[in-house]
Design a protein around this nucleic acid. Structure first.
Lengths: 337, 337
DNA sequence: CTTACGAGATGAACCGGTTAAGTTCAGGGG
DNA sequence: CCCCTGAACTTAACCGGTTCATCTCGTAAG
């Protein structure tokens, strides 16, 4: 049963009565092979169940046809309740599948994890490395790029030393639309629950909020969160404590917005009549929360697809693709604001 | 910048003034190397930024130190809203990380996908293959096992031709606990929203429901679902239509249970006073739904960890590990029942 | 003083493919 | 009839490591 000895190119060649080189050319679909020989080789391949050894092939071609996606969080945090990473993976996976490339997933939360990823990539295990969201000024993308490894990030990297290409969404535009919607519907004491200050998504959404309110001459009120539901609950409580008269809140993630809904209900405030709430992401939860959440939709799938497409271009080495792709966001109005 | 030419063993050897063989032994931590030489080699490695080429190494060692996790769904369905796969990935990832193995994620939804996975594994790209949930009588695990590739499944495979080792949870026990809880709290018209009939999780949870009710001499009422929230909504509506007097429902997943909550509210039924609801999974959503959901907790993280541990044992080839590991489930009582 | 021994380093044979250069041979032009 | 050409195949040199059989040399035993 355990067919441990895989047939090698040599075995196929012997069986078909030709040389290794010829078999190789047949297997790789070369044109200059006589039909008779080609058929004989293919028959031998079939009969022996031959599959080329990937290590041997990579050794000479210098390609592995697989691409890494780095989740720069600790393993435990990545998939807690957040649907961002799953959606990115889905988009990336779909796109790579059509290109017949393999997706290698790596968690690089710890310091050791960073090292592992670097060694792995430099060891030539993958043809390129994609980063799904970056914390702070992570040196890893730049380090890999300097090593000559194709790299692309989801979210603009905060370090610009070697410029690393990236895919991002129009955070500011989305937030501005949300805040303008709140103002247009008569809200004037508009608070925000911000994301982590070490992530571009957190920074830019907060900046967008500040800009939009400054433009309208309205005061700001900020509470800190980390994109999780728990942090949304806590932040909403603290906002209510510091300004009981607030009439709207923009949360930088749907999970935090959902937390805000829970905290508001707990405080006896009605949404949207007392307080309007807007989130960011357009996760499924926003459709099914009570009330359904008005939110800024970002096309996470499309981020993943774009990430993969840009990477494939880079690996093909054909052109010099754009260094940045920014996807649009869209305000989805439901009942909460 | 693009340091395209990676240093090779040869280069390190030359620089340190020793032979390739010696460098290899130092790099792999051999004992029989004089301290002086070892230091010299290490210095050379450091200075050149040498990292062993993985393809070359795999070619001779026949190991790749990476392990595949197959998600046997189409890419689009895998990460829609379901937190099962993310949790599995998290568990597997954590365990493999400590063993310094790499996780290779593959989606094998299509027929072509199946083929890709098989070729990939047989090509020696990975040391073993783990399956995260199986649909129907998927022949792939058996096929790989027959090829001599270590294989393990999450969820008992429905095909038993070559027996494939697996990790699963005690579906029947969990469901029985849920149904008994309903009966003990005075419910007598207990319906169920079942999972897909081509998955063991769907089959066994339904069987558990039937057995528990038969034991109590109570009638059954079954609606079909596919684990998604949408299907839960539809199933709940149809249950209410066929028996308006039902007073409890067990849903085979938390998402379907959540859907049931929405449909019940829509129908003006109060939970739990009119109808009790119990789910299965203990996703985050069950804590935050309205009302919070009583549910059967399955330790998904632990499934992932166990999957990885069993795989590592098998790869190490030390012992012959058990062919099946069944993890316990636990009834978590909240407000919905 | 010779011999045996073993720790430590080396040379070379792989691993299983790819591909540049070389060989063979049939057919066409001069 | 000879030479040239190009199609089709083979030979052999890599790719970059690992590992086993050898070799070297200092030291302890006889």
């Amino acid at each position: 049963m355990t067919t441990r000895e895989r047939p090698t190119l040599e075995a196929v060649a012997r069986r078909a009565g030709v040389s290794r080189a010829t078999v190789s050319r047949v297997v790789n679909g070369s044109t200059t092979v006589a039909a008779g020989i080609r058929d004989a080789v293919n028959r031998a391949v079939e009969e022996l169940g031959y599959v080329p050894n990937q290590a041997a092939r990579s050794l000479v071609t210098q390609r592995t046809d697989s691409i890494a996606l780095i989740l720069p969080e600790t393993t435990n945090r990545v998939f807690s309740d957040d649907l961002f990473f799953p959606a990115i993976i889905r988009g990336v996976g779909a796109e790579l599948e059509t290109a017949d490339k393999q997706l290698v997933l790596m968690m690089a939360g710890s310091e050791a994890g960073h090292h592992r990823v670097e060694r792995y990539a430099v060891a030539g295990h993958v043809d390129g490395v994609m980063f799904a969201s970056i914390h702070g000024a992570d040196p890893l993308p730049g380090a890999l790029a300097r090593r000559g490894i194709p790299v692309i990030c989801s979210g603009r990297p905060m370090t610009a030393e070697p410029p690393v290409p990236y895919v991002d969404v129009d955070h500011a535009g989305g937030v501005a639309a949300a805040v303008r919607h709140l103002i247009a519907t008569g809200r004037s004491r508009i608070a925000t629950i911000a994301g982590p200050p070490d992530m571009v998504a957190g920074i830019e959404r907060l900046a967008g909020y500040r800009d939009a309110l400054a433009e309208a001459g309205l005061p700001t009120l900020v509470a800190a969160g980390d994109f999780t539901r728990e942090s949304g609950i806590a932040a909403m409580r603290s906002l209510l404590a510091s300004d009981p008269s607030l009439d709207a809140v923009f949360a930088a993630s749907d999970l935090m917005a959902h937390g805000a809904l829970l905290a508001l209900r707990e405080a006896g405030r009605h949404v949207p009549s007392d307080v309007a709430v807007i989130g960011f992401d357009d996760f499924d939860i926003s459709r099914y929360s009570d009330p359904p959440l008005t939110t800024v939709r970002q096309p996470i799938d499309e981020i993943g697809r774009t990430l993969a497409r840009q990477m494939l271009l880079r690996i093909a080495g054909d052109t010099t693709p754009p260094d940045a792709v920014v996807l649009p966001t869209e305000l989805i109005v439901r009942d909460s604001a």
